[in-house]
């Protein structure tokens, strides 16, 4: 029975195209008043895995922006370099294994901005066009390579 099941699985495996979407114009932002001035790629990944990164004596707090599927996919591909499944799994494993609080998440851009302005040490990701239109937030210089428009 196992052999039949394995055969079916192999046949299914070859019947699906494997594709990866990518987004562009993603930037990392913070409040204008924030003491967070820059983050390198490694620090960004650490922050978004719930690990501690301290900048100017403030612990950087990540915000997940789930207002747009393409934006979230761009974040996973360009910043975290992992699939959504792997990322979610990493966060949950760190929570149940080490008691690490996962990043707070919001489903609308308005709430993301509100949360950014509420805590100065917070960072988030959004489309560049959106960030350019908001005078209260600042784009952080970051060093992740795939920073495509």
């Amino acid at each position: 029975m196992i052999r039949i099941f394995l055969t079916v699985i192999v046949l299914i495996s070859f019947s699906f195209p494997v594709s990866a979407e990518s987004g562009g114009g993603l930037v990392i932002v913070t409040s204008n008043k924030s003491k967070v001035t820059s983050l390198n790629r490694k620090e960004l990944r650490r922050v978004y895995l719930g690990l501690t990164v301290v900048k100017n004596e403030f612990k950087v707090r990540p915000i997940r922006n789930l207002s747009n599927d393409d934006l979230h996919e761009a974040f996973l591909q360009n910043v975290m370099f992992m699939s959504s499944r792997t990322y979610e799994r990493q966060l949950n494993i760190r929570t149940i294994r080490k008691g690490i609080k996962p990043p707070v998440e919001y489903m609308t851009s308005n709430n993301v901005v509100k949360a950014l302005l509420g805590k100065e040490e917070s960072i988030a990701y959004m489309w560049k066009s959106e960030a350019d239109n908001n005078p209260n937030i600042r784009i952080l210089p970051t060093q992740y390579v795939e920073h495509a428009e």
Binding site: L6, I9, S13, S19, S83, R85
Partner: peptide
Amino acid sequence: EYDVAPKWITYA
């Protein structure tokens, strides 16, 4: 485990 498609995983 192998991700055969974005939402499908096969495993043994």
